[in-house]
Design a protein around this nucleic acid. Structure first.
Length: 343
DNA sequence: AAGTAAACCAACCGCAGCGTT
DNA sequence: CAACGCTGCGGTTGGTTTACT
């Protein structure tokens, strides 16, 4: 028996999201939390009728609900509307992280994104495909291309790499479980990729984080009003992007950090592969301060007594280093091909 | 100024994995 | 244990914007 489509292909809207749809979706998630995407398109009608009636008075055409499939809703939320997403220029440090993690994990963008909580896997994937891959291939074909054989030419596909992935996941999971007594509910702004996250098994509680989504709605509404001319759909991307950036202002302090701290692409990339930062500049204060609970767990994890997993500690140390460079040097000096020795 | 190529990125598609029944 | 349903992931596409001629 063939698998049925996630949604009826007939009557399902496709293409770019309009600000109105964004508002509807954000409102629904505000109410119920992320997850259970299957019910979003139908339930959005209820949300509109109950939660946003006063807000949306006058926009009666919205009451038709979202004509989007669940997949589209989830994607829109995780890649665009979710609070805490940083958009725009990738910092030097982020580039380094992506390059190294890609070398370690391959094209596992979700896994890589878990180390860059403010970036979405789609964003990272796009950035890799449009920027980093070209840069690296250019360097590879260049005169000193041999410098980075350890990265692209040695895509880790061996056992150690799978083991690493598994170990990270298991350690993460174990730590989450261990801490679950203190933190019974996962904060909603962390990506709900964790399979243990079930917003409907426990009553969803709106947190302060979601207030940013309320701001989001307000801004979306404002933008929608401004752009309610026939061209509104065209400016969708701009307005929602702005709202996302504004949104960051409510959730963190690093919204402008990327653009400000990014050096020129060439400068940034010069140090991309050498990766022997002599100072702690590669980890900005903001990035450290804005770690999600998930990454904070990783910090704790790296400090836990897991002495047997030296490579993991090195990775974690490097990724979330609080200033010392020992972890970075150790990691960089560790040849990827020889990591199996640790396992 | 107009046409074309390249770059960018949001969104779609199909598959895989996991949980539930 | 198998079938089913849902969600997440990675590859890819296509529309839009920007750069170049």
């Amino acid at each position: 028996m063939g698998r049925p489509p996630c949604c009826d292909k007939v009557g399902v809207k496709k293409g770019p999201w309009t600000p109105e749809e964004d508002i509807i979706l954000v409102s629904y998630i505000q109410e119920h939390g992320p997850g259970n995407w299957r019910s979003v398109p139908t339930n959005t009608e209820l949300v509109l009728l109950t939660g946003l009636y006063s807000l949306l008075t006058g926009f009666t055409h919205w009451f038709s609900g979202l004509l989007r499939c669940s997949k589209s809703c989830r994607l829109r939320w995780t890649n665009y509307l979710r609070p805490g997403i940083k958009r725009g220029n990738f910092t030097d440090h982020e580039e380094k992280m992506i390059v190294h993690l890609q070398a370690l994990l391959g094209n596992r963008w979700a896994a890589i994104a878990s180390y860059l909580p403010q970036r979405t896997d789609n964003d990272i994937k796009n950035y890799w495909n449009t920027h980093l891959k070209k840069k690296l291939s250019k360097l590879n074909s260049g005169p000193d291309g041999q410098k980075q054989d350890g990265f692209l030419s040695s895509q880790p596909k061996g056992q150690w790499e799978r083991r690493l992935q598994t170990d990270i996941h298991m350690a993460k999971q174990a730590l989450c479980e261990a801490l679950s007594l203190d933190k019974p509910t996962q904060l909603p702004d962390s990506k709900p990729s964790n399979s243990s996250y079930h917003p409907f098994t426990k009553p969803y509680q709106a947190s302060s984080t979601y207030a940013s989504s309320a701001d989001n709605i307000a801004r979306l509404l404002e933008n929608w009003k401004k752009n309610s001319s026939p061209k509104s759909a065209q400016t969708n991307s701009e307005t929602t992007q702005n709202s996302s950036n504004n949104n960051l202002g409510a959730t963190g302090s690093s919204s402008s950090e990327g653009a400000q701290s990014a050096t020129t692409p060439d400068q940034a990339f010069d140090s991309l592969l050498s990766f022997n930062s002599s100072t702690s500049e590669s980890v900005s204060v903001d990035e450290t301060a804005n770690l999600t609970p998930e990454t904070s767990l990783f910090q704790d994890e790296s400090k836990s007594n897991m002495e047997t997993q030296v490579p993991l500690q090195l990775i974690e140390k490097w990724l979330f280093d609080d200033g010392t460079t020992q972890g970075q040097d150790d990691l960089i000096n560790m040849p990827l091909e020889d990591n199996a020795v640790f396992f």
